[in-house]
């Protein structure tokens, strides 16, 4: 359904300028991705000698080199990222769902206070959290572990905020009331009635968190020392750092960057059917 009103006849012109301007914007946004796609096909000697957007001949070699690099540590990084982002987003969505539901559906003392305090978490600079989080986890000997990257990211103020909006819009009060009349407990009503109704919104929360964790750099950078546990962002960063001494690693960095962005782009395109971009800003059709 389009919300656009029909243009009055006679005044309608083909909006070529807006289309062209947006295409320019799209070009700007696709440019680095196109570059990394081309650059990953170049062999080490071609990278700095041939024209930037001229494809090279070494893509399969690059992938093979990357796979061989330190016994396949790159793929370990990718698996770690998938684990951090997947498990983190799943847990985060679950916590957001119950919290958002409670804040949307019930009336209780201190409700707005709880909501506002949770939301204030959004405003905290990650570093004021990450440094003491590291020191506190060091006290219980938990730094440099999978959990040290996973746990601090589970509670997402933005996720709770979105889940509350979706629950308020998607779960009618009389449906919950009917569930109670049928003698369902509160947890059962949530699980069997409200949760399915909130699902489209929760997919959005999941995606948002997945991207947030996948893209996170500061927390693993602070928490982790053992590169077997690195996510791909941190792994590529260390590879780039070594590359300033060993330029041969640059082709590995570039190929690694390409392979690291493919899963997220694929995820976005695949889930698009279940999900509208507009939901991300909390817009709910009433």
């Amino acid at each position: 359904m389009s919300t656009q009103p029909l243009a009055a006849p006679g005044r309608r012109r083909l909006p070529l300028v807006p289309t062209a301007a947006l295409l320019l914007g799209a070009l700007y946004c696709l440019l680095p991705v196109a570059w990394v796609l081309v650059a990953s096909t170049k062999s080490g000697s071609e990278l700095f000698s041939t024209f930037t957007f001229l494809p090279g001949s070494g893509f399969t070699d690059n992938v093979a080199d990357l796979t061989e690099y330190r016994d396949g540590v790159y793929w370990k990084w990718m698996a770690n990222s998938a684990f951090y982002a997947g498990a983190g987003a799943l847990l985060s969505t679950a916590v957001s769902a119950v919290s958002g539901y409670a804040l949307a559906v019930y009336r209780f003392r201190g409700k707005e206070t709880v909501f506002n305090v949770l939301l204030a978490g959004v405003l905290m600079p990650p570093v004021i959290l990450a440094v003491p989080q590291y020191l506190l986890l060091a006290e219980v000997d938990m730094t440099d572990s999978y959990l040290s990257v996973l746990l601090p990211l589970i509670l997402s103020p933005y996720g709770v905020y979105l889940a509350r909006i979706y629950a308020a819009a998607a779960v009618p009060a009389d449906v919950i009331e009917a569930g109670r009349m049928d003698g369902g407990g509160e947890w059962r009503i949530f699980r069997t009635i409200a949760l399915p109704m909130m699902l489209p919104g929760l997919v959005t929360v999941f995606l948002f968190q997945f991207v947030a964790v996948w893209n996170n750099f500061l927390l693993p950078y602070i928490m982790l020392g053992d590169d077997e546990k690195f996510p791909v962002t941190l792994g590529l960063y260390t590879l780039l750092q070594q590359g300033s001494n060993t330029p041969a690693l640059y082709t590995l960095v570039i190929t690694g960057a390409l392979l690291a962005i493919i899963p997220l782009i694929a995820l976005f395109l695949a889930i698009q059917r279940f999900w509208s971009l507009d939901l991300l800003s909390g817009a709910v059709k009433s």
């Binding site: 083909l14 909006p15 990394v36 750099f217």
Partner: peptide, 29 residues
Amino acid sequence: DTDGLRLRGFTRLAIFLPYAIPGVIAALM
């Protein structure tokens, strides 16, 4: 939001695409 725009879906998705790319990889590219 202009009426009768062509390629609306494509341009919207393309301009949104960098959101899915980690800051580290963006800086690297």
